[in-house]
Design a protein around this nucleic acid. Structure first.
Lengths: 91, 91
DNA sequence: TAACTATCTTACTTTTAGGTAAGTTATTGC
DNA sequence: GCAATAACTTACCTAAAAGTAAGATAGTTA
């Protein structure tokens, strides 16, 4: 229940619903997040087992994030939250 | 989407799903919450239009909280979050 | 060889969330 | 007339979350 008790986690998960995304692109989708919070939050999501992280050994670096199976199991909840939030934009 | 981005709000809403509850009882159900945070959070939820607050002019005071229609519309999401959180208790 | 790239870290500071403890209220029961 | 009651509110303080800005990395291209 406390699972979603953070500002950024649900947002990041939400943006990964459609496709895997590489780090920079995902970050640009989360408007307002600082670089630090972004890295910190994906690290936590990875530890939680909600997203996967794939590093390509190239220069400049390339990192891709995607939902794990466990993360995928949140799909309905994430979509509901999104729809609910858009109904009338309080908060 | 940022709607649930707090530690206590979803918890309080969740405990109101079944019945309206008077203040003290509701607060005792939210283990770990301080008196201050409790009052503060229900105030916010009331402003958000998610819960209703009914004051009975008796001594000692009696206050009852319940879900508003808008709050009630979160029922499925709250229950999903709860079930999801219990599946395996990470976080 | 210097600049550019994408991703992340680290040190430092500010902002926000949260806790503790005391005080307020108005009636009832002793 | 004093204590007990439920539901706050307030002032003060600490802890946690988040922002800013700088630096590390190492190949590629000019």
């Amino acid at each position: 229940m406390g699972l979603i008790g953070t500002k950024w986690k649900p947002l990041i998960l939400f943006h990964l619903l459609d496709n895997n995304l590489r780090s920079g692109i995902l970050q640009r989708k989360i408007s307002g997040i600082s670089n630090k919070m972004f890295t910190q939050t994906v690290r936590e999501l990875e530890k939680d087992g909600l997203i996967t992280r794939k590093v390509f050994p190239v220069v400049p670096p390339k990192v891709e994030y995607g939902l794990s199976e466990r993360g995928r199991s949140l799909e309905l909840i994430l979509k509901s939250l999104d729809t609910w939030g858009e109904q009338d934009l309080l908060d």
